[in-house]
Simulated scan of single mutants.
Amino acid sequence: MLTTAHIDRTVQTALDEDAPSGDVTSEAFIPETATARAVLRAREAGVLAGGEVFAAAFRLTDAATAVHLERADGDRFEAGDVLATVTGSARAVLRAERIGLNFVQRLSGIATLTRAFVDAVGGTGVRIADTRKTTPGLRAFERHAVAAGGGSNHRFSLSDAVMAKDNHLAVLTARGLSVTEAIRAARERIPHTMRIEVEVDRIDQIEPVLAGGADIVMLDNFTLEQLREGVALIAGRAVVEASGNVTLATVRQIAATGVDVISSGALTHSVRSLDLGLDVEVAEA
């Protein structure tokens, strides 16, 4: 999902935004011949994601800059651990510093939060999945971070799978159309390899959706009792996904209802960037 070409294109855009006409501070203060060694150090425990993105910020600024990643994406670390070292032109290191940190801090925050959710449902067999509630332009980056944290990725885009949500169903209902027949008709229009998911917010919507042949039924904002009832009603006829109001405090209880997947937009849209620091030592060449 996260290719080198995609990383380079996005990181270069961020670098251009941050220094459209150069880094006037470093150029004014730092001798051109100065070299620097910088250490990426964790200031709190977490899970790493975005190591290659961090490295790209320095590589694209100056190809002669060397970045050695001490940990791989998905690795856990503790406060004080060294995650990477950077050596090269001091001006280049200082110019790329903030962009490299912005990416690795946010992505590691996502991976760390995802790992907490995954750990919370450990042993249940339930998958923790993300949603399309991602930062525009950074979906591949944030989805990569979810995977690094042990989570699963939902459909990447609107082009990947049929997923009828509440507003789709509202349009059908307003036109007096049958949800069951609409699902069957949709099946005829899509490739045989594509699955159909339908979101419901009431128990009475489940049977018509199953009658249409939906592969996945999303139970949206159901109470724990309603989730158990929905799982029993579906009885293995479709994959059951729970979504809505999922928190670390509730995710274990949701998993215990028997659902197969729990999706949460909070993994990407409400995450806190992890506290990572880059300590730079500058010396004359």
Rank of each mutant, 00 (worst) to 15 (best):
T3Y: 05
H6G: 00
I7A: 04
D8Q: 13
R9F: 02
T10M: 11
V11L: 04
Q12N: 14
T13K: 10
A14K: 00
P20L: 00
S21M: 08
S21H: 12
V24C: 03
T25Q: 04
A28C: 06
F29H: 02
P31L: 13
T33M: 07
V39N: 04
V39M: 03
R41T: 15
A42H: 07
E44Y: 09
E44G: 12
A45L: 04
A45T: 12
V47L: 05
A49S: 15
G51D: 11
A56E: 05
A56N: 03
T65Y: 10
V67Q: 11
R71A: 09
G74P: 10
E78H: 12
A79D: 10
G80Y: 11
V82D: 13
V82M: 08
G88N: 07
A90I: 13
A92Y: 12
V93R: 03
R95A: 13
R95Y: 01
A96K: 10
E97P: 01
I99D: 01
G100T: 08
N102F: 06
V104G: 06
V104W: 08
Q105G: 01
L107K: 07
I110A: 08
A111C: 13
L113G: 09
T114Y: 06
F117R: 04
F117I: 05
G122Y: 08
T124N: 14
R127Q: 15
I128T: 06
D130Y: 05
D130P: 08
D130K: 05
K133H: 11
K133N: 11
T134W: 03
L138M: 13
R139W: 06
R139S: 11
A140G: 02
H144A: 14
A148L: 05
G150C: 08
N167D: 03
N167M: 02
H168E: 05
H168M: 09
A170L: 14
A170D: 13
T173N: 12
A174R: 15
L177M: 14
L177H: 12
S178Q: 12
S178L: 08
V179L: 13
A182P: 04
I183E: 00
E188C: 13
H192G: 11
T193N: 13
T193Q: 10
M194D: 09
R195K: 15
R195Q: 13
R195N: 09
V198T: 11
E199F: 06
V200W: 08
D201I: 10
I206W: 00
E207I: 00
P208E: 01
A214Y: 00
I216A: 02
I216S: 06
V217D: 01
M218Q: 11
T223M: 11
T223W: 05
T223E: 01
E225K: 12
R228Q: 14
R228N: 09
E229R: 14
V231P: 10
A232I: 01
I234F: 04
G236M: 05
A238T: 05
A238V: 00
A242D: 02
N245P: 00
V246W: 07
A249G: 02
A249T: 10
Q253T: 14
Q253M: 14
V259Y: 09
G265P: 03
A266I: 08
L267H: 03
H269I: 03
S270L: 07
S273I: 01
D275G: 01
G277L: 08
L278F: 01
D279C: 07
D279M: 04
E281N: 10
E284A: 09
E284I: 06
